[in-house]
Design a protein around this nucleic acid. Structure first.
Length: 498
RNA sequence: UCCAGAGUAGCUCAAUGGUAGAGCAGCCGGCUGUUAACCGGCGGGUUAGAGGUUCGAGCCCUCUCUCUGGAGCCA
C-alpha cells in the first residue's frame, strides 16, 4: 500500500495539526525533503521563530529554532552561530559547546547552511545582544557548498540582482520583502476599513487601446499573428492588462467604492530605476466622488502607508535608515504630519517659470511636466509631497472629465520627493456626449468601448479614482532607489531570469 | 529607444602602453566569550567578447554584449 507523503504545512508554521484525518489530507501532496522528515522525527517540539524568541522577556528552556547560518565563530571548546530564519532582521546568537549531540557536524555549518537547534534561551553575558541560545542539541539540515555567494560583508545591489534566488537571505532584501508583505496587508486593511470592495479585474484583456502604454500580446497562434486574429484563442487579439481602471469603473458604478490590487504589465522598452515590465498597481475608484475627494483619498492613503511603516516595520525601517537612506524615517514622519501641497497645473507652471532655475526642458502651458520639473516642485520648492491638478486636456487621456473652463481636465498627480509621480488619477468624464467627443478627438473607435460608454447611458454618476504603483510606494517608504530591488524577481527589458 | 559611464580572481577594487596585484571569501594551521572575530600559510585570471594599431595592449581605436546613472514613456 502506498504510504501518504508526510504533511508538513502546519508543522512548519508552528500551528497544531488538525486531528480529523480528512483535514489532514493535504490538498496538494507535499513531498518533504528527506532531511526535513528526519529532523521532524527527531524533534517533536514546536519550532519557535527567532522574532518570537527575541521578544521573550524571561529566559526559556527547550526552544527549537530552525534557520540558516549567517556566520560561525569558533572558540576553544565552543562555537558561536549567528542564526537567521527571516522572521525578523536580527539573528540569534547560538552558543554550541563541543560535545553536545550534533556538534560533530559543527565544521560543516558554514555560512548559508541550514540547521535545527534545540536549547535554552538565556541572557547573554557579553555585549552585543540581549539573548543567546545555549544549544543542547544541533542538527545539520543542509550544507552550503563553499561556493555560496553571500559573504559576511556587504555586496553591491548589482551583484545581488544576479543572485535573486539567494538575496532574500541578505539583511537588506529580507527587510525589503518583509516590508513589502506588511504593506500589501496594509493596503487591504486601509480600503477594507473604509468599505471599499476588492475587485479582481482581468489580467488578460481584449481592449487593444487602453492608452496607458505598450501591451504584451497574449496568443495561442503560431506564425503571423495579424493574418487571422479571429482564429486566436479569444477570437480577437488579446493582451496583458496595463490597467484595471476601465473595468474598475464598472464595479464602482455598482458597489460605490472599489479598489483593485494586482499585477500590471507594460511592454515599454523602459530602462530606468522606476520602471518594470511587471508591477503591482493599486487602483481605487469611487462613485459619487469628484476630484477633491480623489485627492483627499490619495493623500490619506499615502499618509496611512507611511504611518503603518513607522508603526509596524520599525526594525527594518531602522535598517533602511542606516544603510539605504539616512533620512527615510524623518521623511515618513514629515509625510504623516504635514498636509500635501495642492497646486493647479497653471500655478505649477508659474512657480517653475518664476523659479529662476534653469531647466533642460522648456516650461510652458500645454507642455508636460518633465521629471526635472516634478522634482523641483516636490524637492526644492515645496519640500513635501505635492498634488498637481487640472491639467490641459490635450496632454491627458480621453476618459478624464472636462472642467468648466473647457481647457483643462480634472486630473491629478501626486509627486513625492525622490520618486516623482507616485499617483496618477482623475475624475472621470461621466457625461456621455463629452466622452464621445473625447473619444473622437483621441481617434478612438467608440464600438471598442461600448460597455464603457454604457456606464454613461445607464444611471451615470460622477466618479473618480487613481492608480498607484505599489513598487514606487515601496521605494518611497524604504528609500530603496531601484525598482528592481523591491520586486522579488524583476522583469525588465531583456531580463526574465528566475 | 537616446545620452553618458563602467566591465580585471567567487566578491569589492588597484595596476604611466612594458613581469596582472591587494583586501575579503575559500582551503590548511594557530589563538581566542566571539560580534563583518583575529594571526600565519596555500590555491585562485581567456583583464566581458571579436577585430585592429603597436616591438609590446587590462590601458589606444572599431564593433558587439552586459550592467549602472540620466532622459523619454509612465505607475
Amino acid at each position: 500500500m502506498k504510504s501518504e507523503p508526510p504533511h508538513v504545512g502546519y508543522h512548519k508554521l508552528g500551528i497544531p495539526e488538525p486531528i480529523a484525518p480528512a483535514c489532514r489530507r493535504p490538498i496538494f501532496p507535499l513531498v518533504a525533503p528527506r532531511a526535513f522528515r528526519e529532523h521532524r522525527a527527531a524533534f517533536t517540539t514546536m519550532r519557535t521563530l527567532i522574532k518570537h524568541a527575541l521578544a521573550l522577556t524571561e529566559p526559556k528552556s527547550g526552544l527549537v529554532l530552525k534557520g540558516w547560518v549567517r556566520t560561525r565563530r569558533d572558540s576553544k571548546g565552543f562555537s558561536f552561530l549567528e542564526l537567521n530564519d527571516g522572521s525578523c532582521l536580527s539573528g540569534l546568537q547560538v552558543v554550541v559547546d563541543a560535545g553536545i549531540p550534533g556538534s560533530a557536524d559543527l565544521h560543516r555549518l558554514t555560512t548559508g547552511a541550514s540547521t535545527v537547534v534545540e536549547g535554552n534561551l538565556v541572557a547573554s553575558p557579553a555585549a552585543g545582544q540581549k539573548w543567546e541560545l545555549r544549544a543542547t542539541r544541533l542538527e545539520l539540515v543542509g550544507e552550503a557548498d563553499p561556493a555560496y555567494p553571500l559573504q559576511k560583508k556587504g555586496h553591491t545591489l548589482e551583484f545581488l540582482r544576479t543572485i535573486a534566488h539567494l538575496r532574500p537571505r541578505s539583511n537588506l532584501f529580507g527587510a525589503v520583502f518583509r516590508t513589502r508583505s506588511r504593506l500589501a496587508y496594509a493596503v487591504h486593511q486601509f480600503f477594507q476599513e473604509r468599505d471599499f470592495v476588492y475587485v479582481h479585474t482581468p489580467i488578460i484583456t481584449a481592449s487593444d487601446c487602453e492608452g496607458a502604454g505598450e501591451m504584451f500580446r497574449v496568443t495561442t497562434l503560431k506564425g503571423n499573428l495579424d493574418e487571422n486574429p479571429a482564429a486566436d484563442f479569444f477570437g480577437k487579439p488579446a493582451y496583458l492588462t496595463v490597467s484595471g481602471q476601465l473595468e474598475g469603473e464598472t464595479f464602482a458604478c455598482a458597489l460605490s467604492n472599489i479598489y483593485t490590487f494586482g499585477p500590471t504589465f507594460r511592454a515599454e522598452n523602459s530602462n530606468t530605476a522606476r520602471h518594470a515590465a511587471e508591477f503591482w498597481m493599486i487602483e481605487p475608484e469611487m462613485a459619487f466622488c469628484d476630484l477633491q475627494g480623489d485627492m483627499d483619498l490619495g493623500e490619506e492613503f499615502v499618509k496611512a502607508m507611511a504611518q503603518f511603516t513607522l508603526d509596524h516595520c520599525q526594525e527594518d525601517l531602522a535598517f533602511f535608515g542606516k544603510f539605504v537612506d539616512k533620512g527615510v524615517q524623518e521623511r515618513l514622519r514629515f509625510v504623516v504630519e504635514r498636509p500635501f501641497q495642492r497646486v493647479p497645473y497653471t500655478e505649477a507652471i508659474g512657480i517653475l517659470q518664476r523659479s529662476g532655475h534653469s531647466f533642460e526642458y522648456p516650461v510652458d502651458y500645454g507642455l508636460n511636466l518633465q521629471s526635472e520639473h516634478e522634482r523641483y516642485l516636490t524637492e526644492q520648492h515645496f519640500k513635501s509631497p505635492v498634488t498637481v491638478f487640472n491639467y490641459p486636456r490635450e496632454i491627458k487621456p480621453f476618459y478624464m472629465r472636462l472642467n468648466d473652463d473647457a481647457k483643462t481636465v480634472a486630473a491629478m498627480d501626486v509627486l513625492v520627493p525622490g520618486i516623482g509621480e507616485i499617483i496618477g488619477g482623475a475624475q472621470r468624464e461621466e457625461r456621455l456626449d463629452h466622452l464621445r467627443e473625447n473619444m473622437r478627438s483621441h481617434k478612438l473607435r467608440e464600438e471598442d468601448y461600448w460597455w464603457y460608454t454604457d456606464l454613461r447611458r445607464f444611471g451615470t454618476v460622477p466618479h473618480a479614482g487613481f492608480g498607484l504603483g505599489f513598487e514606487r510606494l515601496l521605494m518611497f517608504l524604504t528609500g530603496v532607489s531601484n525598482i528592481r530591488d523591491v520586486v522579488p524577481f524583476a522583469r525588465t527589458p531583456g531580463n526574465a531570469e528566475f
